[in-house]
Design a protein around this nucleic acid. Structure first.
Length: 488
RNA sequence: GUCCCCAUCGUCUAGCCAGGUCAGGACUCCAGCCUUUCAAGCUGGCAACACGGGUUCGAAUCCCGUUGGGGACGCCA
């Protein structure tokens, strides 16, 4: 029995990845199986080594260690390409020379006519001679799978049982991009087979792609594994969309930085996977793995309840540590040597006695400071406008990979110019959002020390403190934001 | 829009597959006890089977429909 988790290194280590890793690992441990880690980095533009490192770190922090890997898909291109060639030779796949413009146009039309927006299969009829000739001539193309055009795809999901879908509703999916990299569908299928994965346990968002994968298994002559689609973690707001960093802290590093214990987070995720009828809700990974059963997973999308996590975390804090142990924990969390030195550098010029330290640096040692609405005010701006400014910066920072004081300062300068606002006025509400106070340690350096996760969470809190921004308003704002961004 | 998945307290859920208990537990909230304060702890309380049909002596549980929510529809994963 072999399972895997296959995150894509395109952003912060997501708590959903931890959730899936947890289920896979628990299943593996309960049956003496092997747990494989595979990095899905076939998106050359968005994948980064930093993100990959952060994911490995986060999984290790949680104690979700892998038995094999990490494998990188980008290092397995020869295999992927040769399998594509095999499909091409067998006529199960074909080259497509359609331009992106034509595809966009076609999708727009189909959507407007409320039809299935898939590819119209224009290139599927090309003769193999013409196809080979144009490819040899260097014409840009992708490779698509030829899907069956009639009948029904009958799938088995471990949690849901049988699922049926008309084949004609399945698109001729691209499996090899113009840049020569495989898409998820191909790479995942080929690698799962090559790595002997017996159970594919992944998020529910893949359920619609299962027919494509099944077709690939068949065309490649592979025996398909057992598939199991886990419900998606949801946001805690009204619409309950799938958990996103837009609205909630989703990064595993945020949980670490905000002072949660890895055991508590893991336990919390485990509670979603396998909740006890009654009795003890605090349990270790080993206990979870011990009694692991797929039947215990409920199919409704669970809302991530931070309050319950805090309660669990509190229990770990006081039940699993004595006072001395807790002191070690706090020191480790808040005063890593490097971090402490950075804070000292900011505090030193503002310190009269060591006793000032607490007052001055307190905000760097809490998960979130209290923010008074009145303190967020900026002279000459409405509250709503202040909220918008905060939102603009939040969007800017969400895209920023390099979270250093200099880079952050650059963003503030540009935004102040673009909005015609003095840097002083622009930064004022951010001092309050970050520290809870109008007078505080230097903003940009403080933000660097806090790190992207806490900065984003605090900015969001400040926006909420000002009454928030409605969904409608957000859309309009986003347009203006793009305009401002383009201009600056 | 089309297709797929899902539906028990505000939240996580037990019960459903093998119909028959005041629908159970936990978080949150409220009250009381304990206590130098606050937490913690203890005790108690508020709170749910989305709706409509069917099958049945009997439906949260089985079937159908409606509604609601989510997901997918990319040369992203």
């Amino acid at each position: 029995m072999r399972v895997r988790v296959a995150p894509s290194p395109t952003g912060d280590p997501h708590v959903g990845t931890a959730y899936q890793a947890l289920v896979n690992l628990a299943f593996a441990r309960s049956r003496g199986g092997v747990f494989v880690l595979r990095i899905e980095d076939t998106d050359r533009a968005r994948s980064s080594l930093e993100s990959e490192a952060a994911i490995l770190d986060a999984l290790r922090w949680l104690g979700l260690d892998w038995d094999e890997g990490p494998y990188r898909q980008s290092e397995r291109l020869d295999l992927h390409r040769s399998e594509v060639d095999r499909l091409l030779a067998a006529g199960s796949a074909y080259r497509c020379f359609c331009t992106r413009e034509r595809l966009d146009e076609m999708r727009r039309e189909n959507r407007a006519r409320q039809r299935f927006p898939g590819y119209d299969r224009r290139c599927r009829g090309l003769s193999s001679e013409e196809s080979a000739r144009r490819a040899a001539a260097g014409e840009e193309h992708v490779v698509r799978v030829a899907m069956p055009t009639e009948g029904e795809c009958v799938m088995q999901d471990l949690l849901r049982g049988e699922i049926r879908r008309e084949w004609e509703l399945i698109d001729d999916q691209v499996i090899l991009k113009a840049d020569g990299y495989p898409t998820y569908h191909l790479a995942c299928t080929v690698d799962d087979h090559a790595m002997g994965i017996s159970h594919v346990i992944r998020g529910e968002e893949w359920i619609n792609s299962l027919p494509k994968h099944l077709r690939l298994y068949q065309a490649l002559g592979y025996e398909p594994p057992t598939f199991c689609h886990l419900p998606l973690l949801r946001n805690n707001d009204a619409n309950r969309s799938k958990l996103s960093k837009r609205r909630n802290p989703t990064s595993i590093t945020w949980f670490r930085d905000a002072g949660f214990l890895p055991q508590a987070l893991l336990n919390f995720l485990g509670l979603i996977v396998s909740s006890r009828a009654e009795g003890e809700e605090k349990f270790s990974f080993d206990q979870l793995a011990d009694g692991f059963r797929f039947e215990d997973i409920s199919l409704g999308g669970p809302v991530f309840d931070l309050d319950k996590l805090r309660w669990l975390n509190a229990r770990y804090l006081r039940e699993d540590h004595d006072a001395a142990g807790l002191a070690d924990l706090v020191r480790e969390w808040s005063m890593g040597r490097e971090r402490l030195a950075a804070i000292a550098a900011l505090a030193q010029p503002r310190l009269e006695t060591l006793g000032d330290w607490g007052r001055l640096t307190n905000f760097l040692f809490v998960d979130a400071p209290e923010v008074e609405r009145a303190k967020l005010a900026v002279k000459g701006l409405e509250e709503a406008q202040v909220a918008e400014v905060l939102q603009f910066m939040l969007w800017t920072l969400e895209r920023e990979q390099e979270f250093t004081a200099d880079v952050i300062q650059g963003h503030f300068r540009r935004l102040s110019e673009a909005l015609g606002l003095s840097l002083r006025d622009l930064t004022r509400p951010f001092y309050v959002a970050m520290s809870g106070q109008t007078a505080s340690l230097p903003l940009f350096q403080s933000m660097e020390i806090l790190g992207p996760d806490l900065v984003r969470a605090r900015t969001r809190r400040a926006i909420d403190a000002l009454g928030g921004i409605s969904g409608k308003r957000t859309k309009k704002l986003q347009k203006r934001f793009e305009a401002v961004r383009a201009a600056s």
